[in-house]
């Protein structure tokens, strides 16, 4: 307790780069600059209630939910495979799985563009087989694909780490008491892995709902998500006040979803990230 000063750099860091910007965002979101100076208003929040913006919000949540569901469906079996009993094979698999993450996120997404383009690799291959070209890029599917591809590790790794911690003898005990492989999974492995599933869901849903790069690159102009909206307000339109208001709304949504998740998680006593 004597060495309180050790925490000062972190406290300063947090004040400078987290607290102050948050206050600024909040300040921008409830003010408007007029000739008479700065006045407080809620009109930016009211503006967000217009259907055109609400539909952007719903599309963002909808696509993020689909992405999260897909990540769960793909990621859970993946985590179970990684958790296989052969240690040597497990390490190779984990390495293969993590290698793409060493590459920059943007590069990976650009790579998908070249694959999905009208003259891209996949269409060229289809043409060779005599099929017509397909519109693979610039639709919801492409955006979801990009999200799943980029965020899948955030689902797999927490589930894997929880599965890895499950005591083997608990599984053997279930077998011993008459449970076949499916029942063991349903009654023991899955319930015990829930903390991992929950932190996986949180870690995929949050970046998915706020992404703007994936939707811009793979979704083209027409598939605006809430992240793109915020980006536009700040960088293109220059309406910092409205952008800040949307950011605040986004933050509240994320905080709420995290709160729900962590409340659910507490019943299963941690092991996850939150």
């Amino acid at each position: 307790m004597k060495k309180k000063w050790i925490s000062y750099p972190y406290i300063i860091w947090m004040i400078l780069f987290i607290i102050v910007p948050l206050i600024l965002v909040l300040f921008y979101s409830i003010t408007v600059r007029t000739e008479d100076g700065i006045i407080f208003t809620l009109k930016h929040y009211k503006r967000f209630m217009e259907p055109v913006y609400l539909s952007v919000l719903f599309r963002s949540i909808y696509l993020a939910l689909i992405c999260t569901a897909l990540c769960l469906v793909l990621g859970y079996p993946m985590a179970m495979i990684l958790n296989g009993r052969n240690i040597k094979r497990r390490n190779i698999l984990i390495l293969l799985f993590v290698i793409p993450m060493w590459m920059n996120f943007l590069l990976r997404t650009y790579a998908w563009m070249t694959l999905l383009e009208r003259r891209g690799l996949i269409n060229t291959f289809l043409n060779m087989l005599g099929f017509p070209s397909m519109n693979l890029l610039y639709n919801n599917g492409a955006v979801v694909l990009g999200m799943v591809y980029n965020f899948l590790p955030f689902m797999v790794l927490p589930i894997y780490s929880v599965l890895n911690k499950i005591d083997r003898s608990v599984i053997e005990a279930a077998e011993d008491l008459g449970a076949n492989a499916f029942t063991v999974f349903r009654k023991v492995i899955f319930p015990l892995s829930l903390p991992g599933v929950i932190s996986g869901i949180t870690m995929v849903f949050m970046p998915a709902v706020t992404t703007f790069v994936i939707s811009r690159l793979l979704g083209g102009g027409q598939f605006t998500l809430i992240g793109n909206l915020i980006e536009q307000q700040f960088l293109l339109v220059g309406d910092w006040n409205f952008g800040s208001a949307i950011s605040m709304i986004m933050m509240v949504i994320i905080l709420l979803s995290m709160g729900i998740m962590s409340k659910y998680d507490q019943e299963h006593e941690g092991g996850g990230l939150w």
Binding site: D167, N180, V188
Partner: peptide, 20 residues
């Protein structure tokens, strides 16, 4: 014959109770 088909039951070293 897999464990779940044997007419034996086991008490494990560290109890192995289901924590959930």
């Amino acid at each position: 014959v897999p464990p779940y088909k044997r007419r034996v039951n086991t008490v494990f070293q560290k109890y192995a109770l289901f924590p959930h």
